[in-house]
Write a protein that binds this DNA or RNA. Sequence first.
DNA 1: CACTTGTGTTAGAAGTTATAACTCAGCCGT
DNA 2: ACGGCTGAGTTATAACTTCTAACACAAGTG
Lengths: 212, 212
Amino acid sequence: MAETPRERYRAQVRAEIKEHAWEQIATTGASALSLNAIAKRMGVSGPALYRYYAGRDELITELIRDAYRSLADTLRAAAGTGADLAALAHTLRTWALEDPQRYLLIYGTPVPGYHAPDDITLISAETMAVLLDACPPPPPDRPATPFDSHLARHREWAGGDSAPPATLHRALSVWTRLHGVLSLELAGHFAGMGFDPAMLFAAELEDLLAGA
Amino acid sequence: MAETPRERYRAQVRAEIKEHAWEQIATTGASALSLNAIAKRMGVSGPALYRYYAGRDELITELIRDAYRSLADTLRAAAGTGADLAALAHTLRTWALEDPQRYLLIYGTPVPGYHAPDDITLISAETMAVLLDACPPPPPDRPATPFDSHLARHREWAGGDSAPPATLHRALSVWTRLHGVLSLELAGHFAGMGFDPAMLFAAELEDLLAGA
DNA sequence: CACTTGTGTTAGAAGTTATAACTCAGCCGT
DNA sequence: ACGGCTGAGTTATAACTTCTAACACAAGTG
């Protein structure tokens, strides 16, 4: 390693910038993130930040990477302590509610032109792998659905994993259903409806577990 | 009515502005929508647009309103021709794929400070009402889930509708599950996975119909 | 101890939203 | 039909934004 003092300082400043960026994103949203405002809060002048990030896009990309990383680590840590699918779902929801804008930075509206770097899609795959491992194998008596057979032939995804198509299907259902409830909750679409989103989340989860 | 020529012209220009706005949103996303760019494309100078919209926020609010309106009208029209829940789901998906950014303008990442005007939430309720009407009543033998009983006591939502809690629950499941698949598809999260999102959508829908 | 490297500075270009002041064309009532 | 008011479009300006360029200087490096 041999960290020079300058590298150490550089890393520290980069981290500080990201910290302020998260703070700002949490209050004003990612689209309104301003390098200038961050600089002002750090007591330096605008262009100074360009020594550390090539531009706004690179900073946001780094934040997205960190968000993916945080989610993957959180879920993997939970799985490591023997959490089952239900506990994993709860971990996901807690992580999302902890910082809604962080969740939405990953799963929210994408910028049309933007393409994530390859390493980010790798981290995303890691998250899916944790989810996949937590999905119990399907009972052997259940007939394969059309989507199952489709998955058997089309799975560039999870190449290393030897899970049967029905399990892949299940993981996808878990993912999309939990995301469906979570994203609508975070976006405030349940606001005027009176019920507790946590209970809808629990109901959907219950349904998923019963179906296994 | 008695439309004066000026009112007529004003309405026409407002419509033209929105048209260009949609075009721009489709290609660059809502966050990058620029009044200046619209003005340039219309051959007028920047501040001219402020005669028609008080600012960027008002224009976007109007676009959001139109998006909700379009979705509600589309679904209601489909329901009017006797479409069942499956057909309605297909209509929703078609509408979303037709202009992904329009869907995401409604259901994507919200701006933290933003609160939609009341009339918009009314249109949203209209959409939910269509969905609710298409949900078949639950078989009477099924026991109420915890969420069902929760809904029975907490439903500021759908006050006029006399649907039983189990039907409300079903409508919420339909909404959140279809949205889960759709939003991840539109955001490109299924990109590298190889399978056809339409088939996952169909599988989720099938599951919903079977559960009824 | 001198030198190179990198950090922060100011200046400035090219954008953006938005307001103010002004010109002028077109509608409207007399 | 004609004068006046209303409102549309203009330019100028302020206050922002991202980002580049040129410069000063402090710090680590040999």
